[in-house]
Amino acid sequence: MEERVLHFKRRVLANLTGYGLEGESRLAKHIEKLQAGSYPAQGGKKLYTAEDSRQIREVDAPWPLPKFDRPEVLAFFYSKGGVGKTTICANIGVTLAAAGNRVLLIDTDPQASLSLLFDVDVDQEIYTLGDAVEAVIHDKPADFRKGLIRPIKDLQLDLLPADNRLVWTDMLMVQAQYREKLVEQVFICNQALLEEYDFVLIDTPPSVNSLSFSAVAASNRIISVVQLSKMAIKASGNLFKLARELKKGTGRVVPITFIPNMLHGGKPHTRSTLDIIRASIDSESSSKVGITATVIPEYVGLARPKGHEDGQKTLLEAEPLSLTTQKFIELSREIETLAMLDRGDENHG
């Protein structure tokens, strides 16, 4: 497997740190002061890494790096497949990490789509969240550090992969007591490890089962991706039902944030789609439900098939200066803001 790296040009660094094109001259002063960046071995313009983003955002940047005493856990959940949930989870994870955050991705889908996107050989023996859950059920150590993979060099992004054995994990959980708290128990067992991260992103299977319910119960917020499809929008009913069951079982109201995906501003039915989503939100006024200001546009680059000549890459790796990549940078800023709001709610809750 070829080693993946993520080095980017100054314009991308400017976008990630909030300077933008108009602030590149100010950014240049910080680059010089911090001695950020390095020249590639074969020559050419200076390139930068996530560590440069982190240093600049910690010193002085239009978009400062948030400080968390514990990770923000986000469960990417929707009960319909094919809406782009896994792709968006991966792109947000990489973008957050490139902007200087420490990110852990957890794949809980037996199809292992997130793991495959990062070139994990799921046919090899790997340690998954399912192994950790089974360990907790049988009162054994549940250390998933040994299962972590760092798929992109120079990026503080780790992945706990998945494989098809998670189907059996879900069946085992059905028979367990307090199954909605099992993932939370795994996190407690791995608290010291989790404190090394700013964000934990959980990609759940496209169905309501014991594992996805437990993952949502262990999260600070549900991230739900919706597309321009009646079936996809109707599936939000299952999401709201899950949230109500979670409140009934644990007493917690987990905030829900919708990310509209594959929408095109030039299409007249885009506005009606957003109106339908907002109407669904209004009907759930008792819950903390919202929709991102950033809408992911309809773009073929988000659906790279297996065997593509560039491989399965996130947009920041493949097309760092595209408009859709910029949308993910804007979306990552919204995610950071939501994380800070969640901290405020916890402090005043």
Rank of each mutant, 00 (worst) to 15 (best):
M1T: 00
E3I: 11
R4T: 15
L6Q: 04
H7Y: 13
K9T: 04
K9N: 12
R10I: 15
A14W: 08
N15K: 10
N15C: 03
L16T: 00
G18I: 09
G20A: 12
L27M: 05
H30Q: 12
E32Q: 15
K33V: 09
K33S: 08
L34P: 03
A36V: 00
S38T: 01
G43H: 04
K45D: 14
I56H: 02
R57N: 12
D60H: 08
W63I: 13
P64M: 07
L65R: 13
P66R: 03
F68E: 03
V73D: 01
L74E: 02
L74K: 07
A75H: 00
F76A: 01
F76V: 01
G82E: 07
V83F: 09
T86D: 09
T86Y: 09
T87C: 01
I88H: 02
N91E: 08
I106N: 00
I106L: 00
Q111W: 06
A112N: 05
S113W: 06
S113M: 03
D119W: 07
D119V: 01
D121Q: 08
V122L: 00
Y127Q: 11
T128E: 07
T128R: 02
G130W: 10
V133G: 05
V133H: 10
V136I: 15
P141H: 04
A142R: 01
F144K: 04
R145C: 06
K146S: 12
K146L: 10
L148S: 09
L148W: 09
P151R: 09
D154L: 07
L155P: 06
L155V: 15
L155S: 08
L157K: 08
D158R: 07
L160S: 11
A162H: 08
D163M: 02
N164F: 13
L166E: 11
V167S: 05
W168H: 12
D170A: 14
M173W: 08
V174I: 15
R179G: 05
V183K: 05
E184N: 10
Q185R: 11
V186K: 05
F187N: 03
I188A: 11
Q191R: 15
L193Y: 06
L193T: 11
Y197W: 03
D203V: 07
P205S: 14
S207Y: 03
N209E: 10
A218G: 01
S219R: 08
S224F: 02
V226G: 04
Q227S: 15
L228W: 04
A232E: 06
I233S: 04
L242S: 03
L246F: 06
K247F: 06
V253I: 13
H264E: 14
G265I: 03
G266S: 12
K267D: 07
P268M: 12
H269A: 10
S272Y: 13
S272K: 13
T273L: 15
L274T: 00
R278S: 13
S280C: 06
I281P: 07
I291Q: 00
T292K: 02
I296T: 01
E298Y: 14
Y299V: 05
K306N: 14
G307T: 09
T314I: 10
T314W: 09
A318P: 00
L321P: 02
L323C: 06
T325M: 01
T325E: 05
Q326M: 10
F328K: 03
I329D: 02
E330V: 09
E330L: 14
I335S: 02
L338R: 11
M340T: 15
G344A: 15
